[in-house]
C-alpha cells in the first residue's frame, strides 16, 4: 500500500503549475514511489506510513516550481511573454516608422525633391529649421531603418541604431527642461521613456534562441500602417474636420483599441490556435498606450473638454482590451514550447 506516501508526495507536487502536472505528475509519482517501495507488502505498508518526501526531494520540487512559475527557459510563460514582447517591440517600432514616413514625405515635398508633385500647402512649407530640425529628420529616417533591420532579422544593427536614436530625444528633453521650454511637464518624458527607450531596451528579447521574425508580414505592415494612419488623417483634413484628430497618446489608444477589436473574433474562436500570443501582445501594447494616455492627461487637467475626451479614449481602450484579456491569460499556460507527445503505447508488464 503506497497510499499515504503517494498522498504526501502529491501534496508537494501541488506546488507545480497545473499545465505541468497534467503532463508529468503521474510519472513523477511513479518514479518517486519506485525509489521507496520494495515490492514486499509488509515492508511497503510500513514505509508508506513512516516515510515521506525528504527535504532534498521537496527542495527539488520547489526549485522546479519556481522556475516554471517565473517562466524559466523553455516554459510556456517565458515563451509567451518573449513572443509578446518581441511583437510589441516590432509594433512600437512600426509606429515610429509610420510617423517617420510623414516627416520624410513632408521633407521631400517641402524641398520639391520630386518634380511631378504639386506645390506643397502652407502647413508643409512652414516647418521648423535649425540643428534640431535636421537632427529630427535624421532620427526619423533612422527609426525607419531600425524597424526594417529588425524585421529583416539584423538584430545587432537594429539595437545599435535604436540606441543612437534615443539619445537626441533625451538631449532635446533635458535642454527643454532646463530652459523652461518643455510644452508639458510629464507627457514628453513619458513618450521618451515608453515609446523611445523601452522598445530599444526590450530589443534584448531578440536573442539567439528567439524564433526568427516573420519578415514578410512585418515588412508589408509598414505601407499598410501608413494607409491606416494617414488615410483617415488626410480625410479629416480634406473635409475640414481637423478638430476630430486626436493627440498622439489618443491616437495610440485608438489604434490599440482597434487592433483589439479586429483580433477579438479570433481570440474567442476555439479553432484559432496560437491567437493567445497576439492577445498578450495587444494587452501589452494597450497597457503602454493606456499608461501614456493617463500620464499625458495630467498635462491638461484644467481643460474639461480634453479631459473628457481622454477619459473616453481610455474607456474605449479598456473595453476593447477586456475582449482579448481572457485569451491573453490562457496564452501564458497554453502557448507552450513544443510539447512532447506524451502518449506512448501502453504495455502490460
Amino acid at each position: 500500500m503506497s497510499g499515504d506516501l503517494e498522498r504526501r508526495y502529491r501534496r508537494v507536487l501541488r506546488l507545480l503549475p497545473r499545465w505541468y502536472r497534467e503532463q508529468w505528475e503521474q510519472d513523477m509519482v511513479a518514479a518517486f514511489l519506485d525509489g521507496w517501495l520494495t515490492g514486499d507488502p509488509e515492508a511497503d505498508d510500513y514505509i508508506s506510513v513512516a516515510a515521506g518526501p525528504g527535504c532534498a526531494e521537496i527542495a527539488s520540487v520547489i526549485g522546479l516550481a519556481v522556475r516554471l512559475h517565473l517562466g524559466g527557459p523553455g516554459t510556456p510563460r517565458r515563451h509567451a511573454w518573449g513572443q509578446a514582447i518581441r511583437r510589441a517591440v516590432l509594433a512600437v517600432l512600426l509606429m515610429h516608422a509610420v510617423l517617420a514616413v510623414d516627416v520624410l514625405v513632408s521633407l521631400v515635398w517641402r524641398h520639391r525633391l520630386v518634380g511631378w508633385l504639386p506645390a506643397p500647402p502652407g502647413s508643409v512649407v512652414v516647418a521648423p529649421t535649425g540643428v534640431w530640425a535636421t537632427v529630427y529628420c535624421l532620427v526619423s529616417a533612422a527609426w525607419v531603418v531600425v524597424f526594417l533591420t529588425l524585421a529583416l532579422r539584423d538584430y545587432r544593427t537594429a539595437r545599435v541604431l535604436g540606441a543612437l536614436c534615443v539619445v537626441p530625444g533625451l538631449i532635446a528633453l533635458l535642454q527643454a527642461h532646463f530652459t523652461g521650454m518643455l510644452p508639458a511637464p510629464f507627457g514628453p518624458w513619458v513618450f521618451w521613456v515608453m515609446v523611445d527607450l523601452a522598445p530599444v531596451l526590450a530589443m534584448a528579447a531578440f536573442h539567439r534562441d528567439a524564433p526568427p521574425v516573420a519578415r514578410r508580414p512585418w515588412l508589408l505592415a509598414l505601407p499598410a500602417g501608413c494607409v491606416l494612419v494617414y488615410g483617415p488623417v488626410l480625410a479629416l483634413q480634406v473635409t475640414d474636420n481637423v478638430a476630430w484628430l486626436p493627440d498622439f497618446s489618443g491616437l495610440c489608444c485608438i489604434l490599440a483599441a482597434l487592433a483589439c477589436l479586429v483580433h477579438a473574433p479570433r481570440a474567442w474562436s476555439r479553432r484559432a490556435a496560437g491567437s493567445g500570443l497576439w492577445s498578450l501582445t495587444l494587452v501589452l501594447l494597450a497597457a503602454v498606450a493606456g499608461a501614456y494616455r493617463l500620464v499625458s492627461l495630467t498635462d491638461f487637467l484644467d481643460d474639461p473638454h480634453l479631459t473628457a475626451v481622454s477619459l473616453a479614449e481610455l474607456l474605449i481602450l479598456l473595453a476593447a482590451v477586456a475582449l482579448v484579456a481572457p485569451d491573453a491569460a490562457r496564452a501564458q499556460t497554453a502557448a507552450a514550447t513544443p510539447a512532447p507527445p506524451l502518449r506512448p503505447n501502453a504495455v502490460a508488464g
Binding site: Q23, W24, A31, E57, G63
Partner: peptide, 10 residues
C-alpha cells in the same frame, strides 16, 4: 532528485 530529474526531462 525526482523534481530535478523531471525538470531536465521536460
Amino acid at each position: 532528485k525526482i523534481g530535478s530529474l523531471y525538470g531536465v526531462l521536460e
